[in-house]
Design a protein around this nucleic acid. Sequence first.
DNA 1: CGCCGCATGTAAGAGGTTACATGATTCG
DNA 2: CGAATCATGTAACCTCTTACATGCGGCG
Lengths: 188, 188
Amino acid sequence: MPRPNRTEPALLGLLALEPRSGYDLKQAVAEQLSHFWSESFGNIYPTLRRLQERGWLSAREEREQGRPPRTVYSVTSAGREALDRWLARPVEPVRPRNELLLRMFLGPLSDPVALAGQVRQEAERWRAELATLEEVLGRLEAGPGAGDSTAYWALTAAYGVRVFRALLEWSEEASAALAYMAEGGGDG
Amino acid sequence: MPRPNRTEPALLGLLALEPRSGYDLKQAVAEQLSHFWSESFGNIYPTLRRLQERGWLSAREEREQGRPPRTVYSVTSAGREALDRWLARPVEPVRPRNELLLRMFLGPLSDPVALAGQVRQEAERWRAELATLEEVLGRLEAGPGAGDSTAYWALTAAYGVRVFRALLEWSEEASAALAYMAEGGGDG
DNA sequence: CGCCGCATGTAAGAGGTTACATGATTCG
DNA sequence: CGAATCATGTAACCTCTTACATGCGGCG
């Protein structure tokens, strides 16, 4: 079973929510999905063309004055069926690759102090991400909420909030353990 | 800045911990690192050869009776230096791609009940992983612990335990929210 | 002999990124 | 005119996986 292309269903799904251009898709991913998804232009444009040739997307040239012309894509009925087939499939298991944990496993080769520094650096990122997600979540819960897609959006944010909190707790644990090892608690 | 090859430092690191064959490496990854790393044979063998040609690994033929001959690789001093350079570099940020959260974001396109089923399915995996990690952690904490690498191993397990617990809590939250939406709490 | 575990490898190619190139339009 | 934003694309290339191929050695 070959590796699945994840960009195709992603773009198909976003376009099913709302027709837009390749440029818009890139922006939407960067602004709303950045904590769990990413796409590059070099992947978006060829994929859009491919989906269109397959008959899953239709393109419409849009010329608004004061702007460069854009190509807005919509999902066709065949595309919608393909999307539904994908949606019905079970989630593909991910092949894990966590560089920080690899370094931790290779700990005996490192200086515990340096390793602790890397943990702290990652923790800073997590802290920043957590802060923005908590803010997003707060805004979503304060808003209207009934009948639209904010509930789903809130769930993706809630996921991040829970995971990053857990990660920050772990970083405390790891820092403490590494500090102990550094001052001879281990092999010193 | 080009994408870094993560297999090279991974194999280099594992071989620095202990010389072994490609087959051994595959087994070690599958048995001890499976919750945060993965490697395939089709990647391991060419990488080993490349590292050897670069002078970072030395190979020794090992013939034990009753077994096929194996090639055991060790890290050279040049390889150790390369590894130390990698260890000193900051952790590469990961491009996130979380299929479950993508589906959640695309929730308005799905049946909430089906979506809840997928969350439950993922939760089952998490539960299973959590159970094995908790068991591993328990064994490691019961063991000797001082002076060797079990402390680092325990930290990788602790990471997983914290994250999977958070994920299971989230799955409860998500299931409840989806159930509510399914019975008309949202757009019904 | 056939199967299984051990052991090594190759070929094909999917999937995705980076870097580069191009052009419209507005604003200062 | 130059810079910034909007907008689309291509070429090169790397990483890694899947699938296939091969062979040794022991066991029933």
